[in-house]
């Protein structure tokens, strides 16, 4: 039985790793350790430089000398939520293009995320090609 499309590897991208063309960091902010680690693996296997943060607060406290290329953000987190972080960055004049991840899509959250400046809104488990496309879009929009 063939695997669903979202589970298939991206052979095209393996031949053209992004990291060689773009040195900017992709930041993952998620309070779930497993998800943080696996997303980091996926993005690294696609050739991106990755940094992970367990909370929005941890991200805000960190220093980024090379600048942040884009963010992969969990919508719902203990403490400051993903949407709150986006708003905060927009409000402080340093917006970062973000890809929002959520367990299930509800229109209200999607609307609020896009309003706060999100580039993409993806549902977990995230499709590999969709994530790659979204990261590329985010990086190019930065």
């Amino acid at each position: 039985m063939p695997l669903p499309a979202w589970m298939m590897p991206l052979t095209e991208d393996r031949q053209r790793p992004m990291a060689k063309r773009d040195g900017r960091v992709v930041c993952i902010v998620d309070d779930d350790a497993s998800l943080r680690r696996s997303l980091r693996n996926l993005l690294m296997s696609l050739g991106f430089r990755v940094e992970t943060f367990a909370s929005a607060e941890a991200f805000l406290e960190s220093v980024h000398p090379d600048g942040v290329g884009c963010m992969v953000l969990d919508v719902r987190m203990a403490g400051m939520s993903g949407v709150d972080l986006l708003r905060h960055l927009a409000a402080t004049g340093s917006p970062v293009p973000a890809i929002m991840l959520t367990a299930h899509t509800d229109d209200e959250t999607r609307r609020r995320s896009l309003e706060a400046g999100a580039v993409a809104f993806l549902e977990k488990p995230v499709r590999s090609d969709a994530l790659l496309a979204a990261v590329r879009t985010a990086l190019s929009s930065a």
Binding site: L35, L42, H104
Partner: peptide, 23 residues
């Protein structure tokens, strides 16, 4: 659903990463 979805999401991401590395 979220509680089940989280590990599933991690599994899918890890599996995709592995396939990428093996290739």
């Amino acid at each position: 659903a979220h509680e089940v979805n989280q590990p599933l999401a991690a599994i899918v991401a890890d599996a995709n990463a592995s396939l990428n590395w093996l290739a």
